[in-house]
Design a protein around this nucleic acid. Structure first.
Length: 116
RNA sequence: CGAGUCGGCCGGGCGGCCGCGUCGGCCGGGCCUGCUCGCAGGGCCGGCCGCCGAGGAAAGUCCGGACUCCACAGGGCAGGGUGGUGGGUAACGCCCACCCGGGGUGACCCGCGGGACAGUGCCACAGAGAGAAGACCGCCUCCCCGAGCGAUCGGGGCGGCAAGGGUGAAACGGUGGUGCAAGAGACCACCAGCGCACCGGGUGACCGGUGCGGCUCGGCAAACCCCACCCGGAGCAAGACCAGACAGGCAGCGUUCGAGGGCGGCCCGCCCGAGCUGCCGGGUAGGUCGCUGGAGGCGUGCGGCAACGCACGUCCUAGAGGGAUGGUCGCCGCCGCUCCCCGGAGCGGGCACAGGAUCCGGCUUACAGGCCGGCUCGUCCA
């Protein structure tokens, strides 16, 4: 799991990131980013709908995304924000390398690569 | 050896590295409590090490229980469920054995298997008639008309009949005889079937036998219904506790002449009872427990046809909370494709169905590939 302080847990937070945040789409993913003024570490959540696949496929996809995102967590802005990684149907049949490339591409478009 | 049938089991294996989660240990930091004042205990954060870490269906959420709360879990109605018999079990709609009916040469398989003389209802199409039913074709006596010498034939009518034909999933017994104008359980014999009595076997469903009776009145209960038995309700987001935040106001009903409540409905009984309801305003996303050791797995022995039970020994095997299993590499097994020196090489996100969420017992559904065993039939050999 992600450390508790980095977990996005409440439905309202998801809504804010999805509806009000900046968006960057790739073939397999859509990343949503909403900067907040709260003094709270950056929180990350995942959305993997049934369109991606069955229960096994959905869980595997979310695990891959969580590990990929956890590796990149130190590079994200430290002053707080909400990041939601949403999986598109193509994510279910993608390789881990493909997903990693899409995560990096999405973060770059949102201007989140590298601390600072 | 071939064909078949039933049952049990596995469901990729081994290893390296990085990462994740529970638990345990060690080290460091800071916090709280206690006192004999430098030690003990508790929990928090970080690092390192070690153990363990999804399934046979974890699934569908269809039954049954454990557990929790509703004071107790009471009666009746309504409602729901089950439905051959006996047993197993905590319990079941599950399992085992047997009975009955049907299928198969057989092993074996299939059956939502109580009641249709308690009542009501339905039986499409076809058909005259679908139930105290019915007469279309048909068969027959008699009467009338016509033809013929006549036997007889044709047409019509009052009646009788239900054997033969025809319809249908189904038409109220079957075969042979007596009988008759023609016929018919009208009567007789045997058989089938129904009912009753007795005898024998079985715990029982039921089976076998003997005698008698009236000769016989279909099907559907997954139509209503009747009978027997079972079911109080809600569910781990149950529920218990800790910490913390806030702000109340107005209206209605009520405090022994009692509001309201007792978690699906109604009535009764019993119990709790000083608050309850509506509107406006305000607050709330924290933590701990429940939470995994159990009707538990495995082995041996005993009882039982079996399901299963008992005794002894032995083992400990996930516990999250937006939810831990991901990535990568090597070797092997199986599969597919390509290549050729016919045995290897190369390629491949190939290797099913599928991911725990309180826990068990079942059922049902999905499933690549594979292993083991019992039994039956056929063929061949001894």
């Amino acid at each position: 799991m992600l450390p508790a302080e980095h977990r996005l847990r409440h439905r309202d937070d998801f809504t804010v990131a999805l509806k009000q945040g900046a968006r960057a789409g790739t073939r397999r993913l859509v990343l949503h980013w909403a900067a907040t003024d709260r003094a709270h570490p950056t929180r990350v959540g995942f959305v993997v709908s049934k369109a991606v696949g069955g229960s096994v496929v959905r869980h595997r996809t979310q695990r891959r995304l969580r590990h990929l995102t956890a590796d990149r967590l130190p590079g994200l802005p430290a002053d707080g924000g909400l990041l939601v990684v949403r999986a598109l149907p193509a994510a279910g049949s993608a390789t881990s390398a493909d997903l990693a490339a899409d995560v990096d591409r999405g973060l770059r478009r949102l201007g989140l690569t590298g601390r600072g």
